[in-house]
């Protein structure tokens, strides 16, 4: 991702040599995802996700807008990814036309928006004239690799956590109820796509990679920034828990054997499962903490049925 960060050739060589011997700098295994920390803010739809030293903040907001003319029954959904020098010196302010920025935002867009993770028809208020416009603003706070994976988790957590104000419709007249007045309603999330990025390294020379049958390219999951800078190729697989491939992007880079790529997809599925479970349990914990008096107010009792 970064262009202006240079790694000294001795460090680069050391990293590649250790990879060849099966070691990573942070003592992880090759197929180990870093621990994911999900922190919900006080407001609905305010999430900070940390993976290792990478930190991404996502904020969901909504407003009432007019739907597109050709899609009167659908609400609007935007994702904006913003990188600033805060994340690392390699990012420029206000410049998101770099190759990597475009690829990153396109992949998130395809993974979440195009795959229909958010039920946009549920955002319709009055067909053709009023609908909710949901916005996801992703801010990169600190960069240590894996932006795509982390942003995708952040956006999905944000969408699952967000509540939009309730509305009542009477003809063309609509009333938006404030959060105190009525319980806000969650968004319709149809599935949870999880992105897993693989980084490929070529331990031999280019000829062996293209012509040879060794297929001993090194394949890492969830690379750190240093590994990202030195990798020869990358593959981002997006899956959901229903065993559906939502999106795969291997935009060039080191040619890889098709079977190895399939293998990557299967590995990614295992990670998808654990991450999805983690997200749902974190959400549940947050919901419980917001509603800590529920047990007291409940009329349920512990009688044996």
């Amino acid at each position: 991702m970064a262009k202006d960060i240079d790694i000294s050739s001795s460090e680069a060589k050391f990293l590649i040599d250790s990879l060849k011997q099966g070691f990573r700098f942070d003592s992880r295994g090759f197929e180990e995802f870093r621990d994911v920390g999900i922190e919900f803010g006080k407001d609905f739809g305010d999430v900070t996700v940390t993976v290792g030293r990478t930190k991404v903040h996502c904020r969901i907001s909504c407003s009432i807008a007019q739907p597109y003319e050709d899609r009167p029954f659908e609400g609007l959904f935007y994702i904006s990814t913003e990188s600033s020098p805060m994340a690392g010196p390699q990012f420029e302010n206000g410049n998101n036309t770099g190759e990597d920025e475009v690829l990153c935002s396109r992949i998130i867009e395809k993974a979440v928006r195009r795959s229909g993770a958010l039920d946009v028809e549920g955002l319709c208020i009055v067909a053709g004239s009023k609908c909710w416009a949901v916005r996801a603003d992703v801010h990169f706070l600190n960069c240590d690799g894996g932006f795509i994976d982390v942003s995708c988790i952040a956006v999905m957590c944000g969408l699952l956590h967000f509540r939009k104000p309730d509305v009542t419709v009477a003809g063309e007249q609509i009333t938006v109820h404030s959060l105190d007045e009525r319980e806000p309603v969650p968004l319709g999330v149809l599935h949870i796509p999880i992105c897993v990025t693989f980084s490929f390294f070529n331990p031999e020379d280019a000829e062996e990679n293209i012509k040879g049958d060794l297929n001993n390219e090194i394949c890492l999951i969830d690379a750190t920034l240093k590994e990202e800078l030195l990798r020869d190729g990358t593959l981002t697989v997006t899956l959901n828990k229903n065993r559906e491939v939502v999106q795969v992007s291997k935009a060039g880079g080191l040619p890889m054997d098709a079977l190895m790529l399939m293998d990557c997809c299967h590995k990614a599925y295992k990670i998808t499962e654990t991450l999805t479970d983690q997200i749902t349990s974190e959400l549940k914990r947050d919901a419980d903490s917001r509603n800590q008096f529920a047990a007291m107010l409940s009329s349920e009792n512990a009688r044996v049925s």
Binding site: K110, R114, L235, Q247, V248, S249
Partner: peptide
């Protein structure tokens, strides 16, 4: 070969 240089799935 069976090596893929590019692989894109969008749906």
């Amino acid at each position: 070969s069976e090596k893929l240089s590019l692989l894109l799935v969008e749906d």
